[in-house]
Write a protein that binds this DNA or RNA. Structure first.
Lengths: 239, 239
DNA sequence: TAATAAAGATTGTCTGATAATCTAATGAAC
DNA sequence: GTTCATTAGATTATCAGACAATCTTTATTA
């Protein structure tokens, strides 16, 4: 007969969870900044009373997010969060695939048109913003392959958000970009020029401070994408 | 004399990085959905040609994000992304503390006002939306503690986004909420009633289809937060 | 002094083992 | 036959120890 089962009953928290929490506390308590070094794995493991393996499960999760960095011979250092990494792996998750195209487009229209007032404002004080956007659009004209076109079109819209100076939105739009990539791929070559014209019109409007016109043009530009996509791409092709 | 140093020179990618990528591919290729089961750790390790340990470093990172779940005796299953978890651990990171309050407020104003047109539209077809918001606001009147007030205020604004039906924005505002929590805590009791009145006004405007007025009121409501906060909260209290 | 080589420290990865936990099969009682 | 408790099997959780790979620092040499 088996001994009395160790009563841990419902969810005993995993060790790595505890360690992750203590690591977080450690960083905050010591007020560590990017680049600062942490104790070695062995020391931390001893400090937390767990094996080096359990400690690593926590640090590796942090490293995945970019919170920590580790190199052989150097040790652990505080990193700088890598949003791209996060979004790349969150973006592919099935749960997020259920979002309809119209929802995605509405969201994008909301953010990009909302940003224009800020962009226009900042353009007045800084010519570089206009030049950057203009340069990308110029390259767009010379794009030969579809892949290159998609890359530059994404860059244009990304730069638009960036020009607003609202950094939180940058990270978010990177997530959205993952989904739009697949829609962009259904674009026809004949439609390139139309898109480029729209881009140009938008930045001219912005430079002139005509925000309302820019919004209208941008909304039309984004929404015209959707009309070309006949059927939403299916991802579930088998039972 | 040491042997010729194994020339790997620049960054040979870590095994866990490769494994993470192959795991991602595996999930996408097999079209796995939330709740679906994966092969066992041993099988996956064999499949990828690495040790079980290296495999675990990848799966644990995924588990941390909520992409995977693991239980002893059951195995690995596809999870549903836990944004709270992600934001909790990203939110404490020093690099993200650099975002200024004005940037946060501008971003919030942009999203919340942008959403109002959608909300108003949907309110016409569904009374429940108005009732939900109204109920939260009603509870807000009866809140006694600051903690309760913060909780309900957050809930109101969250419900507002939710009412737009744009689910991508939900996840994003949850991230922003982490940062706003600390600013809400500086609010004065005397200001409660003013906030509640604003809430009420906003939903009345929305119900009446007066989107422009609702936007104006909401913008004022959010921006008035910032004026109360005298100095941006400092996190670096020591060298 | 500067370049090179060696030594030390630290993470990367592997193997193997035991404990904890869940799932499913088994059997007993009604 | 049905329902419940028990058992057995499968799978992850955690540990320990070892060696390789890599970076940093020190020591050596020209």
């Amino acid at each position: 007969m088996p001994l009395v089962k160790q009563m841990n009953v419902i969810g005993r928290p995993k060790l790595r969870t505890i360690v992750a929490d203590r690591l977080k506390t450690f960083i905050v308590k010591h007020n560590l900044q990017s680049g600062d070094r942490l104790p070695t794995e062995t020391e931390l493991a001893k400090k937390f009373g767990v094996s080096r393996l359990s400690l690593r499960e926590a640090t590796k999760s942090f490293e995945f997010l970019g919170i920590l960095e580790s190199k052989p011979g150097r040790g652990l250092t505080v990193g700088s969060v890598n949003m791209e990494r996060v979004t790349e792996y969150l973006g592919f998750h099935p749960a997020l695939h259920g979002i309809s195209l119209s929802e995605l487009i509405d969201t994008r229209v909301l953010i990009e048109t909302g940003v224009l007032a800020h962009v226009s404002q900042r353009m007045k004080q800084n010519d570089v913003l206009y030049d950057k956007l203009s340069t990308i659009n110029e390259s767009l004209r010379q794009a030969r392959s579809l892949a290159r076109w998609i890359e530059l079109d994404s860059a244009f819209h990304r730069e638009l958000i960036c020009a607003s100076g609202l950094s939180p939105l940058m990270a978010f739009t990177d997530v959205l970009a993952v989904f739009f990539k697949r829609f962009r791929e259904s674009i026809q070559k004949a439609e390139w020029s139309q898109g480029i014209q729209s881009h140009q019109q938008i930045i001219e409007f912005l430079k002139a401070g005509r925000v309302v016109d820019a919004k209208k043009e941008l909304r039309f530009h984004i929404e015209s994408h959707s009309q070309r996509v006949k059927t939403p791409t299916q991802y579930r092709d088998r039972k």
